[in-house]
């Protein structure tokens, strides 16, 4: 359980640090003339899903803490 919490914190730390880089790369890829239409739209969603996965990890750790303390 402690391993999961530590692992989760590392995931959040690395994920949040790299989020702006991912957003920049996605914007750069969308500006690329080779990517148009549906591909460009789906590619734009990458940043959203990336941030959602970080958020879900954070929520998971918080829920785990609350459950351990008996609040949930």
């Amino acid at each position: 359980m402690l391993g999961n919490i530590i692992g989760g914190f590392i995931v959040i730390l690395v994920g949040v640090t790299l989020a702006p880089t991912v957003a920049n790369e996605v914007a750069g890829a969308q500006a690329n003339t080779n990517i148009t239409g549906a591909s460009s739209t789906i590619l734009g969603l990458t940043t959203l899903f990336y941030n959602l996965s970080i958020a879900s990890t954070a929520i998971g750790i918080a829920a785990q803490g609350l459950r351990n303390s008996g609040l949930m």
Partner: peptide, 29 residues
């Protein structure tokens, strides 16, 4: 069955994919 490592690896794969769309594979695109 190591969830944190898989999430980190998955995130790295997402970044790698976007990077390859942007920059190709060195000389190929």
């Amino acid at each position: 069955g190591n969830a944190p490592v898989t999430i980190l690896g998955g995130m790295a794969m997402v970044f790698l994919g976007v990077y390859m769309i942007n920059n190709g594979v060195i000389i190929y695109q």
